[in-house]
Design a protein around this nucleic acid. Structure first.
Length: 1039
RNA sequence: GGGCCCGUAGCUCAGGUGGUUAGAGCGCGGUCCUGAUAAGACCGAGGUCGAUAGUUCGAGUCUAUCCGGGCCCA
């Protein structure tokens, strides 16, 4: 039988007991069993195991869990393999910090093998923290056999994927603009760059004159053109000028040719018309004006001849068969600089003509690719100018002065000054970063753009707007995916280059590596750690010549690892393997869920890899979550110190409360504020309300020895209230089922919340007396079986949301009965609705009863008539005439709730309502008409008759007596079931009340007898004042 | 600079397809009720529904622009 449950509960303690139960009985493992059940494939987005988990991770894990638990209860077998993202720069940075290393050179001196070993250790330190939190919040995921991106088998699948792409011609080597630290000789990630911005950095500001040799090609023919003509461009990095290969203009903007007088005579400058006044001065003469488009396609003279100064010149060319951008570089002898159009050209500063050096800066680089420009790289990785320039051998920032002086001397400098702006510095060594184009390996995702967009359309996004919004936009504007990193701790790129013929070969798996390895490397490859530096030592034989091939030094972007997980977690290394997991339902996933910052991360890497290799999306449904902010709406960050530690909240309010808050507090896709205070509100408003209904039930079930197996309620409930709550309950089951099936847990949770409120504050409150009755009649049994059904259904409905409290209730309410139910609520079935129980008119009628009760209490309070004082009649009026039909069904509830003898319906058309409305005040809420006190609201009215007859007054006093005695019982510490003797002394009026209502008082207070006179020894005695009369009451427990 | 999301009471949030008086919870003041409750009921204070313009007989809701916050990308 049920144990009685105290209304005082510590949810964290209860949850720890439930965790213990799950562990002892292997409940999670059992939920994954059942070969006959259909698989529900879930992919765990691998957390980056380089830091402690925060509350935002709890958010994602809660949403992952709720759907999988629901599917389990719907008869599926969810496969939820855990995973860890263990590679990448963040891990390296943490280890660098630990070891006090500050550059790649130092890492290599320390030793790549030792360094990577530290990375491996660092990762597993955090994994343990994650496991503890995952367990505590009730997130069920297989952590015993997770996929780990650093495992050889995982890396091998990465190789296979690259080989698939390689063979389709989707991999190429191209240039990439990266922020580069010349002192550390290393590129920085965007995250690192963000750490090092400084404001008000002074840089040179120079206006440079690019000579125009053939004016007619640019501004057309005509007389009066100055002899010397220049395109005027602006830059803050003079050291990039030798790398100039183009100038960009805004084709829509107006440009002017103006004449200025110099020592050399009259010369013409071309610049944006809007900037003439500020750059050249108001006194100059505009010779002619034209649109920027007219300049496009023209050419001009080089400031510096790179080829003549011993610097190699390249040109961007389109790869064979590609219709996209010119991404490949090929050497050329020389080039002609070109004027191109650029949508990035600003008319707010500069000259409206932008200096383009594709070797520096990402924008310049993409212009270079887009317009197939020449490429001149005259700076080495240490930031030193190469070639035979006069300023060669100098560090770029030092070369600035020489270049400016040189240009000035040659009459090519219009103006110079100082420009202050925000500029990035290396966060480690404070060296100014250079934007530097470097070679990098790319996946040609742009070649598959249409397929990516089409596959995205097949995905069911929650919220819907992500599909064509943020994610769709990203795909439409997609650029090729740069996958290589010049780092150490990552999946090594499996490309080997021949020392003789310089061709590349992509190795697709370990067996291939072994087959191709040179004889001295072949041993031990089966057990080789595929990480650097071990794999670097393996040389292979070139298939095209007799040369030896060495691996390229780069490792993969860690996002590639995460995107590979659908296949890498099963070590797929062939098309056959791929078909096998497809056949077994392991691919694609039916469900994933992560936060919105993953649009460019995991959501993208999954889709890109599966589109390019598998030809379909790797996930069908996705819940994309918003970010968690602090209580003030700010992003949580270490530097702000506003991170909420999940453990604090878990220890105080428990996992269910956090989960419930996260599910119901806002729309999943919106960012949400989080604080312990908000979680506590959930505990009080929802968790405790539910728990107290549960506690109420077990308290009385114990008193009455109620056993649902033996005492069946009547087939048809005796009470309208029972039929009503069962109707609400069955409707709830439908709605929650629909919500969870549609990946909308928030809507379902909010419906549960409303139901619990109705159950507690209307059903139980209105039904209490039925549980107090001493006789076990049909009506009482009907109430028990109804409330029992509600609680049992609720704990099944809530199991996916709040697995702990659901389990705790289930064990007591269901499992305590012999042989009933599954071993755990999570192994039981999700409830199904009995649609025949749904009674819409009854639910409407009950809502009307609540509305009219509320108005009735309003009227009573305005008239100063306590609810304990019975009144003779109330007149009620509904908003619509049709609603009046419901009143007949609810008069009994209204009589009891309002303590009014007769309820009469005011027909529409009866002048009473109009009269009351006319007599009401400005807010149209209340009116007094003789003895009638009316409360009005939006077409509803309840008017109570305030006349109190002596009989009503006596009855009211009887109820008042009962109330006082009940309080005394409690004060005396009696149990609710204790029977008592009652003593009273008082004036004649009180004696009269006792004489008339003695039976009522006795029944209500469980008094065996009422005795007039002084209380016996041992009784609890109090003096009271009632309607101005003095009386003494005493209560004594029987026996 | 581009894209996306959000902006409703002091706080957290609801408010299909435009339509009576814009709601709930928490918090605050008051009254009541209590034989489950850390609860509940009723009243009150608290809203130019971010701003402006437009469409409309009618806009929190639709359109445009702007402002503020957030995220992602430059």
């Amino acid at each position: 039988m049920f144990s009685k449950v105290s209304s005082r509960v510590s949810f964290p303690d209860m949850e720890r007991e439930v965790l213990q139960y799950w562990k002892e009985h292997d409940i999670f493992e059992k939920s994954e069993q059942g070969e006959d059940k259909a698989l529900f494939m879930f992919y765990e987005g691998p957390p980056t195991a380089n830091g402690s988990p925060g509350i935002h991770h709890v958010l994602a894990r809660a949403f992952k869990d709720v759907i999988c638990r629901y599917k389990t209860m719907k008869g599926f077998r969810p496969l939820r393999k855990g995973g860890w993202d263990t590679h990448g720069l963040p891990v390296e940075l943490e280890v660098e910090r630990q070891l006090g290393l500050t550059s790649k050179r130092q890492i290599e001196e320390y030793g790549i093998a030792e360094f990577n070993e530290k990375c491996r250790e660092s990762v597993f330190k955090y994994v343990r923290e994650w496991e503890d939190l995952t367990d505590r919040i009730g997130y069920w995921v297989d952590m015993k056999d997770p996929y780990v991106t650093l495992h050889n088998s995982y890396i091998e699948t990465g190789w296979w994927i690259l080989k698939e792409m390689w063979e389709k011609g989707l991999i190429y080597k191209g240039m990439k603009g990266t922020p580069h630290c010349p002192r550390c000789v290393s590129s920085l990630s965007s995250h690192e760059v963000a750490l090092g911005y400084q404001e008000n950095v002074p840089d040179p500001s120079v206006y440079v004159k690019f000579p125009v040799e053939d004016a007619t090609g640019l501004v057309g023919e005509g007389d009066g053109l100055p002899e010397k003509l220049y395109l005027l461009a602006w830059t803050t990095t003079p050291w990039t000028l030798p790398g100039n290969t183009a100038l960009a203009v805004d084709p829509q903007a107006d440009y002017s040719l103006v004449e200025v007088e110099t020592d050399e005579g009259t010369e013409g400058l071309i610049l944006a018309d809007a900037l003439v006044d500020s750059v050249v001065g108001e006194s100059c003469r505009r010779v002619r004006s034209f649109k920027g488009a007219e300049l496009v396609g023209g050419s001009y003279g080089k400031l510096y001849d790179a080829a003549a100064n011993g610097v190699e010149v390249f040109r961007f060319v389109r790869p064979e068969g590609s219709t996209g951008e010119a991404t490949m570089l090929e050497p050329v002898d020389d080039f002609t600089p070109a004027v191109i159009k650029g949508d990035f050209v600003s008319l707010d500063e500069g000259t409206g003509i932008v200096h383009i050096a594709p070797a520096f800066g990402d924008e310049d680089l993409s212009a270079g690719r887009g317009d197939a420009l020449a490429f001149v790289q005259q700076v080495d990785l240490q930031g030193v100018i190469t070639g035979n320039f006069p300023f060669a051998g100098k560090f770029v920032k030092d070369a600035d002065k020489d270049i400016m002086a040189d240009l000035e001397e040659r009459g090519l400098l219009h103006r110079r000054g100082i420009y202050r702006h925000t500029y990035p510095f290396c966060w480690r060594c404070k060296t100014p970063l250079l934007y530097y184009a470097k070679e990098s390996w790319y996946i040609r995702t742009t070649a598959m753009k249409e397929q990516l967009i089409a596959n995205n359309r097949k995905i069911n996004w929650h919220p819907e707007y992500i599909k064509e919004g943020r994610f769709g936009e990203w795909l439409r504007n997609g650029v090729d995916w740069a996958i290589s990193r010049e780092r150490y701790w990552g999946t090594p790129i499996p490309f080997w280059q021949c020392e003789s013929c310089e061709k590349y070969h992509c190795v697709g798996n370990v067996a291939e590596l072994k087959r191709m390895a040179t004889s001295e490397c072949r041993d031990g490859i089966d057990t080789l750690d595929l990480h650097r530096p071990y794999v670097d030592k393996v040389t292979i034989e070139c298939p095209d010549c007799d040369g030896v091939m060495r691996r390229v030094p780069e490792v993969m972007d860690a996002w590639f690892d995460s995107g590979a997980m659908p296949v890498a977690q099963w070590n797929v290394t062939s098309r056959e393997d791929l078909e096998a997991i497809r056949r077994n339902g392991l691919f694609p996933a039916e469900y994933i869920s992560e936060a919105v910052d993953q649009t460019r991360g995991w959501f993208y890497s999954l889709l890109a890899i599966s589109t390019l290799v598998m030809g379909q999306p790797s996930y069908e449904n996705v819940i994309c979550l918003g970010l968690i902010l602090d209580e003030k709406g700010r992003k949580m960050s270490k530097s702000l110190g506003n991170i909420v530690n999940p453990w604090e909240v878990l220890d105080a309010q428990g996992a269910d409360a956090i989960r419930w808050y996260l599910f119901t507090a806002g729309q999943p896709g919106d960012s949400r504020r989080f604080s312990q205070r908000l979680v506590n509100e959930v505990v009080r408003r929802f968790m405790l309300t539910l728990w107290n209904v549960y506690s109420f039930f077990t308290t009385y079930a114990e008193i009455d020895g109620y056993n649902p197996k033996e005492q069946h309620g009547p087939a048809e409930p005796t009470s309208e209230l029972d039929r009503w709550i069962l109707s609400e309950m069955n409707q709830l089951v439908l709605q929650v089922d629909e919500a969870l099936d549609g990946y909308e847990p928030t809507n379902g949770g909010r419906r549960i919340q409303e139901f619990v409120d109705l159950l507690s504050n209307w059903y139980v409150r209105r039904s209490r007396r039925r549980f107090w009755k001493s006789e076990n009649d049909e009506d009482k049994l009907s109430a028990y079986s109804t409330l029992y059904a509600c609680l049992v259904t609720l704990c099944r409905l809530m199991a996916p949301y709040t697995p702990f409290v659901a389990e705790s209730m289930y064990q007591n309410l269901v499992r305590s009965l012999d042989g009933e139910g599954a071993e755990s609520v999570h192994l039981d079935d999700f409830p199904t609705a009995d649609v025949s129980r749904i009674d819409e008119p009854l639910m409407e009628a009950t809502r009307l009863a609540m509305k009219l009760s509320s108005l009735g209490r309003d009227a009573r309070s305005r008239a100063g008539k306590k609810v304990r004082l019975p009144l003779s009649r109330a007149l009620v009026r509904t908003r619509d005439a049709s609603e009046g039909m419901h009143v007949g069904r609810i008069v009994a509830q209204l009589r009891e709730e309002l303590n009014i003898k007769e309820i009469e319906l005011v027909q529409h058309g009866d002048p009473l309502y109009e009269t009351a409305l006319a007599a009401s005040g400005r807010k149209k809420r209340a009116a007094k008409l003789g003895d009638l006190q009316a409360a009005l609201d939006g077409g509803y009215m309840v008017a109570i008759d305030t006349a109190v007859t002596p009989e009503l007054a006596q009855e009211g006093m009887a109820r008042e007596l009962v109330h006082r005695i009940q309080n005394m019982r409690r004060a005396a510490g009696f149990e609710v079931t204790d029977r008592i003797f009652l003593y009273f002394e008082g004036p004649a009026e009180v004696r009269q009340v006792v004489a008339t209502f003695g039976d009522y008082v006795r029944v209500e207070t469980l008094a065996e007898a009422i005795r007039q006179g002084e209380a016996e020894e041992g009784a609890h005695v109090e003096s009271h004042k009632l309607e101005g009369m003095e009386l003494t009451l005493g209560v004594r427990r029987v026996g």
